[in-house]
Design a protein around this nucleic acid. Structure first.
Lengths: 341, 341
DNA sequence: ATGAAAGCGCTAACAT
DNA sequence: ATGTTAGCGCTTTCAT
């Protein structure tokens, strides 16, 4: 027999309305009554019926806000598709989505979006904008008003977000090292391309790679780490120069940075097939590089799943009161070669 | 405004009960009325509300039957975990599961299970038992009685199952070839281990592998294809013999077969690290081989997803009347190395 | 502070 | 053959 609100009410000798008030933290119940009801709820192991809840909410659908970089950022496409498929499943349960696209470089936009959404009465927020003090405050303010925030893809550490869903950057570096080990001879030299070592996110992959080499007792050498600052020109110039100067390089790990620039340099120097190249993610340039057989492997961390899971976690929290089981949800690491496309 | 049954009824000038009868193919409606209602349903683009449906079904929960090999078959563990997580999501919508574990080698058990489940009144069946005439008949009989069957992991071709969810065996072979190409020198020799070339499923991977080599213009040579009939002894003996006779082999593709046997032979001949070994799936032996660095890669096709998707498809079909979009759903192909575990 | 009752959209049992 | 109505479990509004 499933326990319903009616049951609880009967046991407590009150009306269902009162039980509902208690369960949803609404005011207007004497503390002692509230306590007694909560006790019974626990004792009887009451679990709300989602279908009934969804049906009752029909008039005033539950809305979740989503704050992320603009649509034209290709990287977020697959995350969006994951969100969409979760939304598809939850549509039947009356869940609506409200997107806010903000500039990653302007924390005030992200913070503003959160504020707006909270004012608009959303029941939860998915958030993916680069870490910043303004944003942290904004998330905490939302938490204060009982609007849970789930960060995805990039975390806002130290904030009161309920959890983070994203990649394990360190691990992707370790995996890249593992691959290099398998495709290169023992003492080969490789270089790493990253955005900027100042950023934790960029550094993680580089560190993972180095640690991966160390852990496996590899004798591969990292000849150089190039910081391209995610700009085409810088990446192109530095990589071009490095490869000209060091003709004994046999592998490149594109940890972060402009893949197109990397591909161009390789073509320019006619190194196609002579270098083993590993990059991350399945953006169009990476796919292109794979198909052209310039890139050997790309390491992907299930972005669809990131989107799907974030929304699902928010839903479970809001609808079923189910707290996330961990603070960090990492999506699985997968390796792609052209044949697996 | 969402279109409800009430709306339809109003438009058609009938009662909601009648509309319900039409929508659920229940008897007792004049054909002309039925047609008119269906017309209106289409015109107004009616979509049933899942939450309401689930709530109404509360008394008599919808049950899906699952027929698969016994629990002790490790391979099905991850598929089961995928089923479980879908079931978790659907529990709130009143979905119940009824498992039947049957011997893969005894078609009559599988056929019997389907029959029983249909008699027991399940609303749909997930099925994974090896192809056979008896089974085909049983699936068709279920279809006749309006009980949809989704096959997963291994298909029952030619039957009236609504769709199949599983691996793309050919593709896994192609990917294996792609990997071999990258880790072995141009003219190296490899051998393939399979169960029996008589079985379509076993053959597919082997063919995929060969075709993968051909397509990429590889000069790798397949020195031999060994049929181990999925038995430890046969696999061990044949592989041991082959590797003794051909000392110029530099790679093994374990397409299908006993991985433990393969690992033993390699250890026996002290070939650890000298051979590049690629296998499939993430069973305990494969994991073990990966960690020991005897197996270089294992190719996995998302078994959790197979379980999850099969149940979800069944649900969508039964609850929302959503027909599967394709007859074959293939899960994604992923490559694992020890570092990605 | 608490109770009673009217839905949310659909199903099923009962009436006509 | 078709209409009516009482739930399914929860929320919310209106009484008390």
């Amino acid at each position: 027999m499933t326990v319903t609100i009616r049951e609880i009410a009967k046991h407590a000798g009150v009306s269902r309305g009162t039980v509902d008030r208690v369960l949803n933290d609404r005011p207007g119940v004497k503390p002692e009554v509230r306590d007694r009801i909560l006790e019974i709820v626990n004792e009887l192991n009451y679990v709300p019926n989602i279908a009934a809840k969804a049906l009752a909410y029909q008039k005033k659908p539950v809305t979740f806000g989503i704050v992320m970089p603009p649509k034209d950022i290709r990287f977020f496409e697959s995350i969006r598709s994951g969100i969409t498929s979760a939304a598809e499943e939850l549509k039947d349960l009356g869940v609506r989505l409200e997107y806010r696209y903000v500039d990653n470089k302007r924390p005030e936009e992200g913070a503003g979006a959160i504020h707006e959404l909270v004012e608009a009465g959303v029941s939860g927020i998915m958030f993916s904008v680069m870490d910043d003090e303004l944003i942290r405050e904004s998330i905490d303010a939302a938490a204060q008003k009982n609007v849970p925030v789930v960060t995805f893809n990039s975390d806002v550490e130290g904030s009161k977000r309920v959890c983070f869903v994203g990649q394990d950057l360190h691990k992707s570096g370790v995996v890249a090292a593992g691959l290099m080990n398998r495709v290169l001879p023992a003492e080969a030299k490789v270089i790493i391309v990253t955005g900027s070592l100042k950023f934790h996110a960029h550094r993680s992959r580089v560190e993972g790679f180095k640690q991966g080499l160390a852990n496996s007792g590899s004798r591969l050498q990292v000849a150089r780490v190039i910081e391209g600052f995610d700009r085409y020109e810088d990446t192109f110039a530095l990589l071009n120069q490095t490869l000209s100067e060091h003709t004994d390089i046999s592998g490149i790990y594109m940890a972060t940075g402009d893949i197109a620039a990397c591909l161009e340099v390789i073509k320019l120097q006619r190194l196609e097939g002579k270098l083993r190249v590993i990059c991350n993610d399945l953006m169009p340039e990476a796919e292109h590089g794979l198909r052209e057989r310039i890139i050997d492997f790309t390491i992907v961390q299930n972005p669809e799943r990131q989107g799907y899971l974030s929304l699902r976690l928010l839903f479970d929290l809001v609808f079923a009161g189910k707290q996330p089981e961990t603070e960090h949800y990492f999506t699985e690491t997968h390796i792609y070669i052209p044949e697996s496309l």
